[in-house]
Design a protein around this nucleic acid. Structure first.
Lengths: 342, 342
DNA sequence: ATATTCTTCGAAATCGATTTCGAAAACCTC
DNA sequence: GAGGTTTTCGAAATCGATTTCGAAGAATAT
């Protein structure tokens, strides 16, 4: 491995000067600087990040924490990779790289924090985390800059999709098409991941605002975010040709996917028999069944916003607690206009 | 930050002894060892990986390289995350963590290699890489332990799905159901990613073995692995109620997904009008249209095998060049039995 | 009791880069 | 040219953990 000592010897200067030349310090002559840079690249020098990290107490590493054992928020959530990719591009621009570690203990907490200290990460992003030791993390967040995505914890600035607003808009949209009895398949309620609860709140608020009664038989909470759980929940709805139910708002596309085989089994079609709205913007919603209407979570914005939040936190700036990112209603063909027969 | 010097002072021993006690060396008394361990955990000590890495020339880091700018092999490929998760669990068991870096230059090569040297990674996994500076990587692979997944490069041991065998089996299966005119929507041919070419070869070989003629009008190479490209390719096939074509083997589920809207447009149904087989085992194939037959790539095995390969390489063992992982035929309901009307 | 071996521990060097502070040289001012 | 300022450079300390090698003490052998 080529070190600055090798460069120093070859260039006929001291290691100190090499370091300064390579780091753009001003107390080194332009001539010597270019000479040093030339011999450095001639030798194929790459700085040793361990030595640098040891001295500077900075690793240029950002830990990405997710739930390895998460069942309700699976790793293959359609949001995860695009979000991470966007986040990565943003922090890379500032020179950071991503250290990928999950905390495989039942609760994301101490184990993860020990990792952070040990690896000297400069910051931590919590994403797709569903089972946290909230007090431990909030405490650690005073030492280690943290940010989270779609997760709300004390002391940790968060970027969240505007679930409430989107759900509200979903009901408004269905109402505008003439729907009056609108069901909601909710996701599993979790303590710090508010996706399910906020979407349910938005649904309720819109009903109230539109003067629609809240019918608890039209709201089913799924056991998980999976298609299987969606199917189970969907079956508990009053479906059938003669049902007064005309529309279903699913808390996620995964849940909606589970309903599709059931629809086939009962020989029902969307949108003719039942209007569907999903959530997430999964790829299949674009191509299947004439296209399903859904809310696209803006992974790119979620990623860039959480990067901004974390980078600000790292540089010590005070930053906003919560940033809301709107979800985009993607209108396709799974919602029918009804009730205009007058 | 708590260091071994702090522990040494508190425990009344030297830093050297602390280091040895914590690392399980034999030249330290059991009594002092337990005393040291106790005070270490009492102080909340976590070792500084930079200091350790500097001295030991080992980072306990494995670099995961993928194509950031890859278009033909998108980041959200259904295989990517499950594979990575399996890989991670396997290398974590040996104490490694994952450094996630893409090479955003047009060709994955020098930039990535510089990163590896700089970060002192102990090994590199190449995955979902589609545009490589092959000579540069092969050269670097002599210095840095590497392994790849679904990518074939000189000097780099690889784990690959048995594309040939699966494609062969697809044709055999369709043949056994009575199909005689079987089309293939191939993926884009790439130099080092053999998914498309091997699947095409398997298709051709099976035709030949079964005595079926090769009809070039039934083989279309898609421009990319996307649904859009799949739709374009599918439209160039002789489809329609009166076509003699009875089955299509798609090189991926994504390509197959693109064909579904076209089917609807022409009022065709699978399997009644056309039998479909996909590749990858995407989630939607399980739930939509009564279930689509596909080949499941065994992400868990691909991940664990590439972990094994890389860990062996790191420990200096000679290891196999190529490991083949079979793909599992998942029979659902998109393939009809025909021709048994006699 | 003396010699020898084994156990246990610590002083000091090392890994590679950064940074402080002082020294030398070059420059300027009058 | 004396005094002062600026520029340019290097010796040495530092970050925290590991490791070598020698020393002191304990245990064993003769």
């Amino acid at each position: 491995m080529v070190t600055i000592y090798d460069i120093a010897k070859k260039a006929g200067v001291s290691p100190a000067t090499v370091s300064k030349a390579l780091n753009g310090r001003h107390d080194v002559n332009d001539t010597t600087r270019s000479h040093i840079i030339a011999t450095a690249s001639g030798l194929g020098y790459t700085p040793n990040v361990h030595a640098r990290g040891l001295k500077m107490k900075k690793s240029w590493l950002i830990g990405v924490v997710y739930s390895g054992c998460g069942v309700s928020l699976p790793l293959d959530h359609p949001l995860f990779l695009p979000l991470l990719d966007s986040f990565k591009q943003n922090v890379e621009a500032d020179g950071y790289e991503l250290l990928f570690f999950s905390d495989n203990s039942p609760l994301v907490g101490n184990n993860m924090i020990a990792h952070c200290y040990s690896r000297q990460v400069d910051g931590v992003l919590l994403v797709n985390v569903d089972n946290v030791d909230a007090p431990a993390i909030s405490a650690a967040a005073r030492d280690i800059p943290m940010a989270s995505c779609n997760l709300v914890l004390d002391q940790v600035p968060a970027v969240i999709t505007d679930n409430f607003g989107a759900a509200y808009q979903a009901v408004e949209y269905l109402y505008s098409l003439g729907h009056r009895r609108i069901a909601h398949i909710a996701g599993p309620m979790q303590k710090h991941v508010l996706a399910a609860s906020e979407r349910l709140s938005g649904y309720k608020a819109a009903l109230a605002a539109l003067g629609l009664p809240y019918d608890s038989s039209l709201v089913i909470e799924a056991e998980a975010w999976s298609p299987e759980a969606g199917a189970d929940a969907f079956l508990r709805l009053p479906i059938g040709k003669d049902s007064s139910l005309t529309a279903v708002f699913f808390a996620s596309d995964s849940l909606m996917m589970g309903a599709l085989p059931i629809m086939e089994r009962y020989n029902l079609f969307s949108p003719d028999d039942l209007s569907f709205i999903g959530f997430d913007g999964a790829q299949w919603t674009q191509f299947l069944g004439g296209g399903y209407t859904t809310f696209r979570q803006q992974a790119d914005l979620l990623g860039s916003a959480s990067a901004r939040l974390l980078l600000d936190k790292i540089s010590g700036d005070s930053c906003t607690d919560i940033v809301r990112i709107p979800a985009e209603l993607v209108v396709r063909h799974s919602c029918a206009e009804i009730g205009r027969v007058s």
